[in-house]
Amino acid sequence: MKLLDELLKKCRPHGDLLVAIVLLFSFALLRIFSKSLIAAAIRKGQWIHHGPEFWPNTILTFGLFLCAILVISLLRKPAERSAEAEIGATSVELMRMLKVAIFLVAYALAIPRIGFIPATTVGGVFYLLALGERRPLVFAGLPLVVSVLILVIFTRILVVPLPRGTGIFRLWSFFLY
């Protein structure tokens, strides 16, 4: 954890520049490969004035220009960026945020496989336990209440077909909605 804290401290001043460079490269790559990414089947001279690639290319060129200015301006002001290094999140906050991010990805992956209601109930329990909730009534009860609430509102009132999952989960879901 100490190592991570040190790493965070070291990297933080360069974060702004790093984000600007990532943006610059993204805009540049999209601009370079825009022809193949915007249906290659367009015939030359097919469009009278501007084809479907004109608008995205204009935006990409504009974005590229802005990114270049931003990167240059950030490179010229290293002193201002380093002042930020002393404050900000530590490894504790980073791990907490990563837990939430991992939960979200796992939740989105689980929904089509085990269905919405089991994913929310089980996922909710794990989420609260991972974030330090130790009151059984809260970590076990709240996900159940939220699942029932979603079930009633979305399947009964709004008639939205929630994902049912596959296999046994799919069969089981028909008992609920």
Partner: peptide
């Protein structure tokens, strides 16, 4: 946040 995220996804 657990309640917010569940409603976000649904």
């Amino acid at each position: 946040s657990m309640v917010i995220l569940a409603f976000c996804i649904v």
